[in-house]
Simulated scan of single mutants.
Amino acid sequence: MRRVLAVFYALTLLLPAAAIAQPPGTLISADPIPDAPAGAQAWRIRYWTTDQDGQVHEVTGLVAAPREAAPARPRRVIAWAHGTTGVAEKCAPSAYPESFEATPALDSMIAAGYVVVAPDYPGLGSPTPHPYLVGRDTAHSVLDAVRAARAIPGAAAGGQFAVWGESQGGHAALWTAATARSYAPDLVLAGTAAAAAPTDLAANMREGSDPNARAFLLALTLHSWSQRFGYSLDGFTNAATQGVIHRLAENNCLELGKNPRLGTILGILSVRQAVKKRDVTRIEPFAATMHANSVDPASVAGPLLIAQGSKDTIVAPAVTRGFARAVCKRRIPVRWIEIPGGSHIDGARGDRAGETLAWITARFDGKTPPDDCRRI
Results as ranks from 00 to 15, higher is better:
V115D: 04
Y132K: 09
L133A: 06
A102P: 02
V116S: 13
P122L: 15
G154R: 07
G158R: 01
A151N: 03
A156N: 15
A156I: 05
A105K: 12
S108N: 07
T103D: 07
G158E: 09
A118D: 01
A111V: 03
D120S: 10
Y121I: 01
A102M: 14
T138Q: 12
S141C: 15
L133W: 03
R147L: 04
V116W: 04
P122H: 03
P131L: 04
H140N: 14
L106N: 08
A157P: 10
E101H: 07
L143R: 01
D120I: 11
V115M: 09
P129G: 08
A151P: 00
A157V: 05
A118G: 09
V142W: 00
A111K: 15
V134I: 15
T128N: 12
G154C: 08
M109Y: 05
F100T: 02
I152Y: 00
V117K: 06
T138D: 05
Y132P: 09
S126T: 13
D137M: 00
L124S: 00
P127I: 07
A151W: 03
P104K: 10
R150Q: 15
P131S: 11
V117T: 12
G154H: 10
S126V: 12
G125R: 01
I110Y: 00
G159D: 15
Y114Q: 07
L106Y: 09
E101R: 13
A157Q: 06
V146H: 01
I152T: 01
P119H: 11
T138V: 10
A149Q: 06
G113L: 02
D144G: 02
A145K: 07
A156D: 15
V116Q: 11
A148V: 15
S141R: 11
G113Y: 11
S126E: 06
V134G: 00
V134S: 06
I152L: 10
D137L: 02
H130A: 04
A148F: 04
T103V: 05
L133G: 02
V115T: 14
Y132E: 04
A111Q: 14
E101T: 13
A155V: 13
T138P: 00
A155W: 01
